[in-house]
């Protein structure tokens, strides 16, 4: 028999992640500040430092940062059942939204005006991706590391021209990092010097 407090905590865990996920559009890092507001400032479940550590760990793991952070908050508050509840809460809104959209998509994609709207959005999405790519590549190139630049060029050629599966490139880069890279930026500079 679960106590009333536990049940109310479970309810709060599910509802809070559900609402946060439902109001966050396009994903990304915005959600982290919303979570901080909710769990640190409003509910006072976590300390600022704890939240920062959770975010860092969520980013270091594979998968979706939002879902990973939700799992960590749930786990911290109510163990494995809490983690499962927060994961469900984070996943349900986009799941329901896309279920509905995919039904409409199948029915209306061939309509002329729907096609034109999607055509315009596609130009916008391409611009959005170009914006992200500019920033990411600038970030890599600004490190002035020969190894990084070669990995960048080789990975691009492999996936864009040779159509090699992106999964293999991720694994290869991870292995390269594991054996040849260290975090220390000073060491980084020395080894990168010609």
């Amino acid at each position: 028999m679960r106590s009333r407090e536990t049940l109310s905590l479970y309810g709060k865990l599910f509802l809070s992640t559900f609402v946060i996920s439902a109001v966050t559009f396009g994903g990304g890092y915005v959600i982290i500040s919303i979570m901080k507001k909710k769990y640190v400032e409003e509910l006072k479940w976590l300390e600022d430092k704890e939240m920062l550590e959770m975010t860092a760990l969520a980013q270091a793991c594979p998968g979706i940062i939002t879902v990973n952070t939700s799992i960590l908050v749930g786990h911290r508050m109510a163990g494995v059942p809490g983690a499962l509840l927060t994961m469900l809460g984070a996943v349900t809104p986009p799941f329901l939204a896309l279920m509905i959209i995919s039904l409409f998509y199948a029915a209306f994609r061939e309509q002329y005006l729907v096609g034109r709207f999607l055509w315009g959005m596609q130009a916008g999405a391409a611009a959005l991706l170009a914006d992200v790519v500019f920033s990411m590549c600038k970030n890599v190139l600004s490190q002035k590391s020969w190894a990084d630049n070669i990995v960048l060029a080789a990975s691009f050629a492999a996936v864009f021209f040779l159509k090699i599966n992106a999964v293999w490139i991720i694994l290869a880069c991870a292995a390269f990092g594991l054996f040849f890279r260290r975090a220390d930026p000073e060491k980084q500079k020395r080894s990168a010097a010609p």
Partner: peptide, 11 residues
């Protein structure tokens, strides 16, 4: 560190 340039290239 190894992943960062690869991920940028993939995107």
């Amino acid at each position: 560190r190894g992943l960062r340039p690869g991920v940028a290239a993939l995107i």
